[in-house]
Design a protein around this nucleic acid. Structure first.
Ligand SMILES: NC(=O)c1ccc[n+]([C@@H]2O[C@H](COP(=O)([O-])OP(=O)(O)OC[C@H]3O[C@@H](n4cnc5c(N)ncnc54)[C@H](O)[C@@H]3O)[C@@H](O)[C@H]2O)c1
Ligand SMILES: NC(=O)c1ccc[n+]([C@@H]2O[C@H](COP(=O)([O-])OP(=O)(O)OC[C@H]3O[C@@H](n4cnc5c(N)ncnc54)[C@H](O)[C@@H]3O)[C@@H](O)[C@H]2O)c1
Lengths: 218, 218
DNA sequence: ATCATGATGTTATAATAAACACAAAATATA
DNA sequence: TATATTTTGTGTTTATTATAACATCATGAT
């Protein structure tokens, strides 16, 4: 019997593949900017450092975007990857914790350009409430659930201290957020099907430190 | 013949293992705070989500820290992991690009607590030069090389726009920095033996977006 | 002191991911 | 139009990573 039946699980594309996609997307964007509209896996390999074979295999998880003897059309592939990454639609987001990092993210125009619109910041510090970062208002965290429900907010960003992160994540879920982008250095304990992406700045710095120690401090 | 001869390369611990170490370290720190001083790989497994087998295997890359029939001494293991990660010594760092992210990092006390001391920020914008974030001064980027040489700066942090990141990385190397922590969304083209750790905020958000699309937007 | 238990360190096995290799198909060329 | 060249898509092989198994030994109860 042929393997014509696949469960969802078997079908799932591995996270290692998915984490390479944004890099492909970035390089294709660069090529697009340069007006280059044809690229081979071999050339992409030189640019990205991945093997040509791996690039082809990765892309073929999502469909045959290339043409034998020709390569890939940059604009088309860029567009397809954008769709795969969900960058073809606009997401509403909010940030809880309007401190250093929360304000930095709110101030960053790059996310808006990519379709992620920060509608509001939330904080519990009365001194911050009412202030604006660009045109984004900082509101009382007590009004957050209502705001999320009223404004179709899909992404909740956590830039609060570690101690309040779990509670705020649960608040996000209660409010109906679909995904959480967490900057607090803790593992959120949430339903398995909840989409959470963690940013681990401390761990990243520790990795750098590990290699410094390994190289210089033996 | 026994495999008693190993090249450096064979000896090297894989990056997948290394990236788990900070998480172990964090959980052990939490246990320490709670006054728990004994832990088994099984209990660590429950906490971290990694299998007990993997935890034991990971740790044994660096030495036999546990005791059969007992488990691991939390304080000892935490200390050992700290040493492995280079957190037992203090590193001097500087930041180039005193914008949103650069200032946020400079303001963050957590890094100092972990032994990473930000000595200065650098920028090319005259309006920023002379300002202070906490007690950290923003200086003219033209004075950066001298400052690094005079102050034993080992870590260079890049929070400048993408366009200037490559040039600034080269400046860091010229000045003698040992490792670069890069927040600009580009791949730095540097000597192979240079230690670089990238923080890819855009890519992280795109991954979140991917899973949102996969789950809701089929 | 003895012995059952618990938990490590380490080897063996399984699963996953990456690299290789090449037929097939399209392109470019003459 | 015929043909040499290019380059994909994909089956196969190899390498890497994770899990399971287990022999060994310290612990703690009796
Ligand atoms: N800034 C960095 O460079 C950095 C680096 C690594 C990790 N982090 C992590 O990112 C998170 C944010 O860091 P930061 O430097 O922006 O901190 P910050 O202290 O500047 O900001 C935290 C904000 O959260 C608010 N807050 C606290 N509890 C709240 C609650 N229950 N509801 C709503 N708001 C609340 C505070 O009022 C404050 O404004 C922290 O978890 C920190 O550990 C930051
Ligand atoms: N802020 C975010 O949330 C965020 C998210 C994703 C990526 N990033 C990346 O992080 C980097 C910093 O982002 P940001 O929001 O802090 O930007 P920003 O514009 O607030 O700050 C950049 C700073 O770099 C300075 N600068 C520019 N060229 C310089 C040079 N040659 N020498 C010295 N200083 C120079 C500018 O004067 C400015 O102060 C960017 O590469 C950005 O793409 C930021």
């Amino acid at each position: 019997m042929d393997k014509d039946y696949r469960t969802d699980k078997e079908n799932k594309i591995s996270i290692t593949v998915i984490r390479r996609l944004p890099k492909y997307y970035r390089y294709l964007g660069d090529l697009l900017d340069k007006g280059i509209n044809r690229i081979s896996s071999q050339e992409l390999s030189k640019m990205t450092g991945f093997t040509a074979s791996q690039i082809r295999q990765d892309l073929n998880n999502f469909g045959g975007f290339g043409q034998q003897g020709y390569g890939y059309n940059v604009e088309e592939l860029h567009g397809e990857l954008g769709k795969i990454l969900g960058l073809d639609s606009v997401y509403n987001a909010v940030i809880v914790g309007a401190g250093n990092l929360g304000q930095a993210i709110a101030n960053y125009k790059g996310f808006e350009d990519a379709g992620f619109k920060v509608l509001s910041l939330f904080d519990k510090n009365p001194k911050l409430i009412g202030l604006r970062i660009r045109d984004i208002e900082i509101r009382d965290v007590d009004t957050m659930v209502d705001f999320i429900k009223e404004n179709d907010v899909e992404i909740g960003i956590i830039t609060s201290p570690r101690e309040s992160a779990q509670e705020l994540a649960e608040t996000y879920i209660e409010a109906g957020v679909k995904g959480i982008w967490n900057f607090a250095p803790t593992d959120l304990d949430l339903p398995d099907d909840m989409i959470v992406e963690n940013v681990r700045l401390n761990e990243s710095l520790f990795i750098l430190s590990y290699f410094l120690k390994e190289k210089y401090n033996r």
